[in-house]
Structures are given as structure tokens and as C-alpha cells.
Design a protein around this nucleic acid. Structure first.
Lengths: 152, 152
DNA sequence: GATTTATTTAGAATAATTCTTGATAACCTT
DNA sequence: AAGGTTATCAAGAATTATTCTAAATAAATC
């Protein structure tokens, strides 16, 4: 994996050491929230709520899917987690707090975090931007290579 | 409205004069498809399928919502229309074929077409991009101004 | 004009997410 | 540490956007 993408393994660390502080005084750091957050940080492959639910259940057997949704909403609101929406698919979640975009491979469905160019949007005066979402679709290097090999 | 946004009125013309050709040989130019497309071009405010449905029904009273969905899918596949997905909201549709992004005002919910910067994504070698989606959220000039006026 | 094939319609089905309600757990006060 | 307050959780129902299904219709082809 080269310069500008972060693989599942190498995503830069994102979480403040003590999540309790980052959650803010308005939110409580519960076991469920911590486990959802921890599982999300372990996986790093942009799981859906349901995928996370399955994973978290191993540690917190009684947890419900609705709770996973709630936790993710809380984490998103407190800024620890980013919700990633690609087309009409189910929301995916990403603990990488660095500003970045997403590349979605149409062949293998992997989602890669990618750097953004450091140029600004050419917006006319008066627009105040609170969030930027950049997503790309296409073929990742591995799939491009595989496709080439398949048909000479 | 200034340089880099297209208002509801001033969106640059996008449709080939004869939609029939553009639809391609694999698709038939039916009354429903034409009316859906025409209504979409008239509105220009990124309507949802349901919003379009209501509008098209005035001209084609018997049309069904499923048909509007079908038509939009066909139009999207043939490249005449772009499906715009912002967060988890219902899909919206856009006949502006020029490459552009979308600015979504959190106050008035208007969606503006915006220019993209002409710098390239800093992708590592091997990524093949077939589509780019850029969306911004924030406050549009009108709402920013109104907010300022409201509280001194 | 008959035949084939795509499209439309209406309604059922699906999938992701949100809502509701009562139970539980965390926090705060004393 | 007990009691009170408020946030959170769990389970299942409800909602919303969208897709699917099957029969009817319309377009294109022969």
C-alpha cells in the first residue's frame, strides 16, 4: 500500500487516549459505547452497524442493534467517529479523524481512506462550510491488476 | 448568485436536444421517461423521486411512483441524469451533466451545484476512478446573512 | 396486423434505520 | 452508602425509501 492510502492495518491513530473526555460532559461513557468504539477501532474496514453489532456481541452478549445505532450516533455527534455514506448503501463508520476521502472499489467492495488534495473548494463568497465529503468509485490497484491478468 | 454556483434558474443547459438518441438504442423513449426528464429539467432544485412523481402526475395522471423510480434509473444509467445522495436522505436527481459538486445548506435545505477545484486527487498509482462525488454542508450566503441580522 | 420484447402499474416485500416504552445503570446529593 | 434524578439500554414495533413481482399495456419488429 502506498503513500496516500491507509490500509486496514495502518490507519493512523485517531482516538484520544481517554475516550471519556472526548465524549464530552453531555454524554456518559458507558460499557456499550466503549465497546462499540473499541470494536470499530479494531476492525478498521468501515463496518456497517450490523457488522459491528455482530462483533460487539461477542464481548457484550446482551447488546441490541438499536443500542449499536445509538452508540454510533453518540460517537458521531461527539466527533469521535465519522459516518460514511456511499450511495444508497447502509451507513459505514470510520474512526479515522484525519480529514480524508473514501475510495470504494467496485470489484472487491473495499473502502480505502484516501488523502484529499490540499487545494480549496472554489466557493463564492458567503458560503460557510461545516463539512466536506469526498468519495470516489472505481477499481483499486489489486483489482485492476487482477483484471489485467485475467484477460490478455 | 455569484460565479461558481448555478441557481435554480441558471443551471447550464445539459440535455442533448434529442433525448431519444442519448437514451441509447437499448432504451425506449417512452412518454413517461420524457415527462420525467422534462419535469426534472424544469424544476432544477434537486427533487426526490416522490417530489418529481407529484409534479409529473399533473401531466401523466396515471403514472406510478414505481415508474418514476424506473425512469430515473434508466435516465441515470444512460448518463442523462445524476443521482445525488446526501447523507441518509432520499436520493435526489440532477440533470446538470457538467462535473460539479453539491452544497447543502443546513438552514434552508437548498442544494446548490458548485464547481470543483481543478486539481486532481492525490491517489497512489493503480487506482482507476470511475466516479467522483463531492458534497459540502454548511450555510449558504443568504442564510449566513439572515443569521447575522437576527442576532447582533 | 401479428408477434416479440420492453415498459408500466399496483401492490407486496425488503432493508436500514428510527421510535416507543419500560427496565436498567450512571451520576449526584446528602 | 441510600435515595433521587436523568441518561441510556433493550426489545420490538413502526417508518421510510426503495425494489420486486406479476399481470397489463405499449413500443418495436417482422
Amino acid at each position: 500500500m502506498s503513500r496516500n492510502t491507509y490500509s486496514t492495518e495502518t490507519v493512523p491513530p485517531t482516538a484520544p487516549a481517554v475516550v471519556g473526555f472526548a465524549l464530552g460532559p453531555e454524554f456518559r461513557l458507558t460499557k456499550q459505547r466503549r465497546e462499540v468504539y473499541d470494536s470499530l477501532c479494531e476492525q478498521r474496514n468501515h463496518p456497517t452497524a450490523t457488522e459491528l453489532f455482530i462483533r460487539v456481541k461477542e464481548r457484550v452478549p446482551g447488546i441490541s442493534l438499536a443500542t449499536v445505532y445509538n452508540c454510533l450516533e453518540t460517537l458521531t455527534h461527539s466527533g469521535l467517529v465519522r459516518q460514511v455514506n456511499l450511495d444508497r448503501g447502509p451507513s459505514r463508520y470510520c474512526p479515522n479523524l484525519k480529514e480524508h476521502g473514501h475510495f470504494h472499489c467496485e470489484s472487491c467492495s473495499t473502502i480505502y481512506d484516501v488523502d484529499l488534495p490540499d487545494c480549496a473548494m472554489p466557493l463564492p463568497r458567503g458560503y460557510v462550510v461545516s463539512r466536506l465529503d469526498v468519495s470516489l468509485r472505481g477499481q483499486c490497484p489489486a483489482c485492476t491488476k487482477a483484471a489485467k491478468a485475467a484477460r490478455p
